[in-house]
């Protein structure tokens, strides 16, 4: 099997890979093109490849706001959903950080009996189906009066976010080692000073990465919000679900889909800067 090693190890793409990359790119972003067209359509029926009537042609004639006029109006509740999504994501991220930082520190530095089991326990929420957690929590939350409340949604979101956060932060602490805190202690710094002057600044890039990732996971959660929000708390994913649950897509649904995609694009631009692929690798990989 002595093949041409130069090909095996070349850093250039093979022709297959070149086509493959194009196909995957088309698969990922291609469907957005008809989505954009649909969002601008008034009536777009099979088998037309372009809408028979555009939204702009009907804009003045209709009694109610159509397509983008509806999406961007207060009636669509999209702003409310967007604000809720961001507020929930931010709160979840903050609580998650407070909870996970101390645990990650210990996990990264200490060895103790049952550590493996504990780590396994921490990742359990990732492998227990969300439907199971959601329905069980709903029963409890109704009893406690937490169903349909902002706080209820926030604490439910902690379940799937904690495992990611703790893994990413543990990786950060492992990367830092222990020496610098000890040196600061030897130099006479008090614990608080060490935390704020030494540890946090050094941790910051990793913490930002973990926080962004947690925020991302939270903004993407549908099922828990849907079950526990009871229609009272709407977020971008649940708003979109209500629009498309029948399995059809009209202009305003297409518009809402595009708006729901926007925060993802913004996050993408930010995370590419802050989260290097290696950090993700530490989060899921080994």
């Amino acid at each position: 099997m002595a093949r041409r090693e130069d090909i095996a190890l070349t850093s250039r793409l093979s022709p297959f890979q070149r086509i493959y990359l194009l196909l995957i790119a088309g698969f990922i972003v291609g469907p957005f093109l008809p989505l954009i067209i649909q969002s601008l359509a008034f009536r777009w029926a099979w088998p037309d490849l372009m809408p028979g009537t555009w939204w702009m042609q009907q804009r003045g004639k209709s009694a109610i706001p159509l397509a983008w006029d509806y999406v961007l109006s207060p009636y669509s509740h999209i702003w409310e959903a967007a604000i809720n999504t961001v507020a929930i994501g931010t709160t979840v991220t903050a609580i998650c950080l407070v909870i996970c930082l101390p645990a990650a520190r210990v996990l990264a530095r200490e060895r103790f009996r049952g550590k493996g089991a504990f780590e396994f326990f921490l990742s359990l929420p990732l492998i227990v189906p969300e439907a199971a957690i959601g329905m069980a929590l709903l029963m409890i939350f109704i009893r406690l009066g937490l169903a349909g409340s902002f706080f209820g949604i926030v604490i439910a979101h902690l379940i799937p976010t904690i495992p990611y956060m703790v893994r990413m932060l543990t990786a950060v602490y492992q990367g830092l080692g222990k020496d610098f805190e000890e040196q600061a202690m030897i130099l006479g710094a008090r614990p608080m000073q060490i935390l704020f002057r030494v540890t946090l600044p050094m941790l910051l890039p990793g913490v930002v990465a973990g926080a962004l990732f947690t925020f991302l996971v939270s903004t993407n959660i549908f099922l828990l919000t849907f079950f526990l929000g009871q229609g009272k708390i709407i977020t971008l994913p649940t708003l979109l679900f209500a629009k498309i649950s029948g399995g059809t897509l009209d202009a305003s649904a297409a518009g809402i889909t595009l708006v729901v995609t926007l925060p993802g694009i913004v996050l993408l631009l930010i995370t590419e800067r802050f989260i290097k692929e290696e950090a993700f690798g530490k989060g899921f990989g080994n």
């Binding site: 029926a45 399995g247 009209d250």
Partner: peptide
């Protein structure tokens, strides 16, 4: 069987 009236409207619009 469509799930709701929106779904059946979509089928009707497309001539399904």
């Amino acid at each position: 069987y469509p799930e709701d009236n929106k779904a059946i409207d979509g089928l009707f619009l497309n001539g399904e």
